[in-house]
């Protein structure tokens, strides 16, 4: 009895006085002159969008627009390898829609896989340029729903069956999923994304080879139920985009655990000093419907 008590007291002391994670003060730098460009053009949308905003200091309240420095004269142009050229126009309520920047749109032009596009963004006297080629989309076979347990409830996750249309080229895929009513395309896109390569169709762990298709990442999205509407997008992108999203995912899942790689700064495909963001030129497959009973 005595020994049991001693051991009990010791263990209780260990457990009750131990903890794990604590907030610390870190001195951050100034966001300075960083310009962030978020541009997406696809072959399957009527409207192409570009957001331009500034970097942000780490400790500001992002939900109040007055905390953000305004961006002065901005022009956004795009041209392809056949000589076509178009200019994006600014959306009036951009500040409201994205909170802290300016939004530009381009309508009425059909973008095509295989074409090379050059984006030029001018902010005051600073010029930012990026050139990318749109990859070919995969051949889609079908989509089905697979039951699995998520937090004691059975939910259905999508499995997409598709084949690589360019075996000679390394293509990469971003697979988004979301419920129909929150399907806003750009915002939150990568909260529900799996980044994949045709080398092994990567899921959460790089290099994992999957023969049948892919499943939604139920850690961030718990699946769908019978009768619900679904809406999924499959972006076929190049390696630069894939790497960018992979770094984003590393940053978002960083928790100091020893298995997490040390996060790094995403490497942009836009040239220029103090610039961040990405020019995504993607072919897009869209899937929507109702989860069958």
């Amino acid at each position: 009895m005595k020994i049991t008590s001693i051991v009990g007291i010791i263990l209780f002391t260990i457990l009750s006085m131990s903890s794990c994670v604590e907030e610390i003060d870190i001195e951050y730098g100034n966001a300075g002159d960083y310009i962030v460009i978020d541009a997406v053009v696809t072959d399957n949308r009527d409207v192409q969008t570009v957001f331009v905003r500034r970097g942000r200091d780490m400790d500001i309240d992002v939900y109040h627009a007055e905390n953000w420095d305004a961006i002065g004269n901005v022009t956004v142009k795009i041209e392809d390898d056949l000589g076509w050229c178009g200019e994006f126009h600014e959306v009036d309520d951009a500040l409201i829609r994205v909170g802290m920047g300016r939004e530009f749109e381009l309508e009425g032009h059909q973008f095509e896989p295989g074409r090379t596009y050059t984006l030029t963004v001018t902010v005051n006297d600073r010029i930012f340029v990026s050139t990318e080629t749109m990859p070919q989309p995969p051949i889609i076979d079908h989509i089905e729903f697979y039951p699995h347990q998520a937090k004691e409830a059975e939910v259905w996750s999508p499995i997409l069956y598709f084949r690589d249309s360019q075996p000679e080229v390394d293509n990469y895929y971003l697979f988004t999923n979301g419920l129909y009513w929150i399907r806003r395309s750009n915002v939150n896109r990568f909260l529900y994304v799996n980044a994949l390569t045709d080398e092994g169709l990567l899921g959460d762990m790089d290099g994992v080879k999957i023969s049948l298709g892919i499943g939604a990442d139920y850690l961030v999205y718990s699946g769908t139920w019978f009768g619900e509407d679904y809406y999924y997008e499959l972006y076929t992108v190049n390696k630069c985009v894939y790497d960018y999203f992979k770094v984003i995912k590393d940053q978002m899942t960083s928790d100091g655990g020893v298995y997490k790689p040390a996060p790094t700064t995403p490497v942009t495909n836009i040239s220029g000093e103090y610039v961040q963001g990405l020019f995504i030129v993607a072919s897009l497959n869209v899937f929507h419907g109702t989860v069958p009973f």
């Binding site: 870190i26 966001a31 962030v36 905003r53 970097g55 942000r56 939150n188 896109r189 990568f190 961040q276």
Partner: peptide
């Protein structure tokens, strides 16, 4: 350790810009 210098918003998510590798001295 390697820690961020500052951040930026991309597509609704706040991301970090890191400075030099192992530039932060732990307590």
């Amino acid at each position: 350790a390697t820690l961020p210098y500052t951040t930026f918003n991309y597509d609704g998510v706040c991301l970090a810009i890191y400075t030099e590798r192992n530039g932060y001295i732990m307590p």
